[in-house]
Design a protein around this nucleic acid. Structure first.
Lengths: 150, 150
DNA sequence: TACAGTTAGTCCAGTTTTCCAACTAACCCC
DNA sequence: GGGGTTAGTTGGAAAACTGGACTAACTGTA
């Protein structure tokens, strides 16, 4: 009888950034907002929750806490390289919402190429977009499915 | 005084798929697991929570509930086109975890091109990858920042 | 010196959500 | 009739979230 959940990196990643507000903290940090008060305002998160989330993100290596004042001690939060790697997730979430939810986009991004950003997930190997059905899953853990198209 | 949170499509999207287990439901559905019991097992989610999440995802148009048995009435959950569009998010979350969390990947995906999938977010306009700093944000709502690099 | 303002939190009581296990309902197969 | 499958529902305890007030250590202004 199967009693544990599927071993899964997506679930593991969500254990780090899947709690309420965590991805919104990263959003703010990418917008250049790096201080506690401004984050609390922009996100609309309770301050104690924000404290807890920042702590978690620092521990997980997505943000680093940097002093910008000695007295009184004051810190700001900067994205690490690992944190920056999650920017794509935010682009895709924004794209999905802009496409499927009511209302006009509150922010538009322009790429250096001059075009408005429309993000596409591609395969690094061949450069083609990753279309549904273009993948084969190979499960490495016994009991959790064989190879199959996704 | 600013009292409301930043208007943001990312936050709006997370209101739909940001609750605990929602993205894992989509993961299962993409693996072809479409029935309640199997989802509950594979995700490890409480059954009442699963019920609530499935309801929400159906209402939001990400899944559709399709009868596969008349008597007794039995339904399965299939991804809609809008649901499938979120697959990229899962690929990126998995990639991030495979890179930054301990343990070896429990699943590996192969693209039709023959290579192991390493997803990259690119700009549809120019085909180049979306590197940090290669974007300019243009805020459409007054009071929420001017143009700036991201 | 007094006083308002800024910044980064902490604390608390009340509400909401989640968790877990058990239970129901409607079937099928033997 | 008994056991197995499937899709939920229910209820009580535990955990998380909420909003607001509060602290501490400054800065800048009059």
């Amino acid at each position: 009888m199967m009693t544990t959940a599927r071993p899964c990196t997506i679930a593991d990643t969500l254990a780090v950034v899947g709690e309420k507000y965590s991805l919104l903290i990263l959003r703010e940090v990418f917008f250049g907002v790096r201080r506690f008060d401004a984050m609390a305002r922009n996100i609309g998160a309770p301050r104690d929750i924000l404290t807890a989330r920042l702590k978690r993100l620092v521990e997980a290596g997505l943000l680093e806490k940097v002093a910008y004042s000695e007295r009184p001690p004051r810190y700001e939060y900067r994205p690490t390289a690992a944190g920056v790697e999650l920017q794509g997730v935010l682009h895709l979430l924004r794209q999905w919402g802009d496409r499927h939810l009511a209302g006009s986009p509150p922010v538009v991004f322009s790429h250096t190429c001059g075009q408005e950003l429309d993000p596409v997930v591609t395969c690094r190997g061949c450069g083609e977009s990753v279309a549904p059905g273009s993948l084969t899953a190979d499960f490495k853990v016994p009991g959790w499915g064989a190879s199959g198209a996704v």
